[in-house]
């Protein structure tokens, strides 16, 4: 059986963007079907201790959420301020 490949669009915001420093962002990722956000986070190399928020297609998502072909994935470190 041949594993199906899905394509998702990923964008990193805030401190977590450092894992894409100097490379295009947003970017397309080719993943195996069944890949979860946690798998994607590991793939990118994000420090598991980092406090991050995930979104899929504009909605809050959990780390265990399984990605589907065409998903828009946001990975963010919330931190705001300044007037």
């Amino acid at each position: 059986m041949v594993a199906t490949v899905i394509r998702v669009r990923v964008s990193l915001h805030g401190d977590v963007h450092r894992y894409r420093r100097g490379r295009p962002d947003p970017f397309e990722a080719e993943l195996l079907e069944g890949t979860s956000i946690a798998d994607l986070v590991r793939e990118i190399g994000i420090d598991p201790a980092m406090k991050v928020t995930f979104g899929v297609n504009g909605e809050l998502a959990s780390e265990g959420a399984v990605l589907r072909d065409g998903d828009e994935v946001l990975i963010l470190t919330p931190m705001e301020g300044g007037a």
């Binding site: 915001h13 963007h17 450092r18 928020t53 470190t77 300044g82």
Partner: peptide, 17 residues
């Protein structure tokens, strides 16, 4: 990193979601 490269306001999407 974030402050150095983007300053403030880089994670509005988190608040939205």
């Amino acid at each position: 990193y974030n402050f150095h490269h983007f300053g403030t306001g880089a994670a509005l999407a988190a608040k939205q979601m």
